[in-house]
């Protein structure tokens, strides 16, 4: 049995984005029947990692829901597109890290959720390291 997953593709695969750039891409669901999908959320967000509690803010959000009364199937694929903001830029620090990603969350029947995300870099910032002097 194949593993269920959402595959995210960025149009300009792997490049570093800058503030004001347009980020676009697509996703498609693999191993999930469209009839089992209740809703799909696509978010483009930044979040922190590291020592502190997580901070998160969503820059772009789209939610698509299947019909309730007459079951309408969602197409198992979609596109997203947004203009990236001026800040915060991606950063890899000693105890604070800021990362950007495209996150696809699939709500399946039976209360199951499937989460996939694809990271990308916004801006070119040198990593922060503990100062020695």
């Amino acid at each position: 049995m194949s593993e269920s997953r959402a595959i995210i593709r960025l149009d300009e695969n792997g490049r570093t984005y800058f503030p004001g750039d347009t980020l676009s891409g697509s996703y498609h669901l693999d191993g999930i029947s469209s009839a089992d999908v209740k809703a799909i959320e696509v978010s483009i967000l930044w979040h922190t990692e590291g020592k502190g509690d997580e901070d998160l803010a969503v820059h772009h959000f789209q939610r698509r829901e299947a019909g309730n009364r007459i079951r309408l199937e969602l197409p198992p694929q979609g596109r997203f597109r947004t203009v990236l903001p001026n800040s915060p830029l991606s950063y890899d620090g000693a105890i604070v890290k800021v990362g950007w990603c495209v996150r696809v969350r699939v709500f399946q029947s039976g209360g199951k959720e499937l989460l996939s995300q694809r990271s990308f870099r916004l801006g070119k910032v040198r990593p922060g390291r503990l100062a020695t002097s």
């Binding site: 004001g20 483009i44 947004t82």
Partner: peptide, 22 residues
């Protein structure tokens, strides 16, 4: 790189879309 130092050219506001029922 796209705008001035005040960030005027870049559009920082995010977008929210809800497609309702497919």
């Amino acid at each position: 790189k796209h705008g001035d130092e005040n960030g005027n050219a870049a559009r920082p506001a995010g977008s929210v879309e809800s497609h309702g029922r497919a």
